[in-house]
Computed example of a mutant assay.
Amino acid sequence: MLRALAVIASLAATPALAATCGNDAGGWESWKQQFAQEASAAGIGQRGLQALSGARYATRTIAADRNQRGVRYALNDFIRIRLGSLDSFASQATRRLDQNRAFFQSLEQRYGVPAGILLAIHGMETGFGNNMGNENVVSSILTVAYDCRRSDFFTPHALAALQMVDRGMLAVGQNGAAHGELGHTQFLPGNALRYGQDGNGDGRVDFYNMADAMASTANFLRQKGWQPGQPFSEGTPNFRVLNEWNAATVYQQAIALSAERIR
């Protein structure tokens, strides 16, 4: 969910301390030392600083970032490639809904977001939790914060990831997607801190727990303007909220069309 920008003011970089970005691994270790000062000034504790010290330059993350082509498929092609078909995808989602309807009903009562939307996002992001990524979250998010291409965007998320380590919300060795997206619905760390919810009532927020991830996703959409009980087809205010999740129109269309079939 790279489109979703949630910069946490308390973790914003202090300009006087801003670490010098780089375009290859050559300045990585020096940058980490500089960034440690920035992180410490932002309130990052010992566990987070240790995670920063041990982070590696994520070459696969850089390769993925520099080879992005964007979503240029027509809707039908996108659905075929990403979902197989709307009906088969919706059937998979409905089976998961049938396993836990009371839970999804409780989320809709609290946040106003229907189960179909949440399950469509879950399925499209990680195949219902079957593929949450194989890149180390801390290393990946720090690498794109170091890289000069988009360091301003990713620096607050890198600080947030270290804060999550401090709070016990993120294990140092936890894997996620190429740009540090984590959990069942691929939250960036800054958004995870801001919108995270305890969905299973165990007193902590864990984005690798399905209940927590679903509650957090519902909270994100509600906070972005989702209107409970209103339609979400293309052209409606709720459809526009989906742009906060992903900027690709075909992605938004696929979510809405799938959600209509998930019952």
Rank of each mutant, 00 (worst) to 15 (best):
L86W: 06
Y57N: 01
L86G: 05
A211V: 01
Y208G: 01
R222H: 15
F78H: 14
L182S: 07
V144L: 14
R96E: 08
D212C: 01
L107I: 08
N238Q: 11
R222D: 09
M169N: 10
A160R: 08
P156V: 05
A63Q: 14
Q92V: 13
Y208I: 03
A9H: 13
R69W: 10
G84M: 15
G27C: 03
N76L: 08
W28M: 02
F220H: 14
D166G: 12
A6R: 13
R66D: 11
V138Y: 07
P156H: 11
G133F: 13
G190P: 09
F35H: 12
R150H: 12
Q174V: 03
T59A: 12
Q230T: 07
S53L: 07
L221R: 05
V113N: 02
T59C: 02
G203M: 05
D212V: 03
N134W: 10
F128E: 06
S216A: 06
A171Y: 09
H184T: 00
H122T: 05
A171L: 12
R69P: 02
A218N: 03
I44V: 15
A63D: 15
W28R: 07
H122K: 07
R167W: 11
R150K: 13
F207I: 01
R80N: 15
T217V: 05
C148I: 00
R69D: 03
F153L: 14
T217K: 04
A51V: 01
L119K: 08
A42K: 13
T155V: 09
A215P: 01
L2K: 11
S10E: 15
G27V: 02
D198E: 04
A145R: 03
T185G: 05
R240P: 00
Q92E: 15
E135Y: 11
Q252V: 00
T94A: 03
L97D: 07
D65I: 04
R80L: 14
Q197S: 05
M214V: 04
A213C: 06
A16N: 06
L188S: 07
D77H: 13
F239W: 14
A64E: 14
A259N: 07
M124H: 12
N134M: 12
N67A: 06
V172I: 10
Q50R: 15
A90S: 14
R69T: 10
S216Y: 10
I141G: 04
L83D: 04
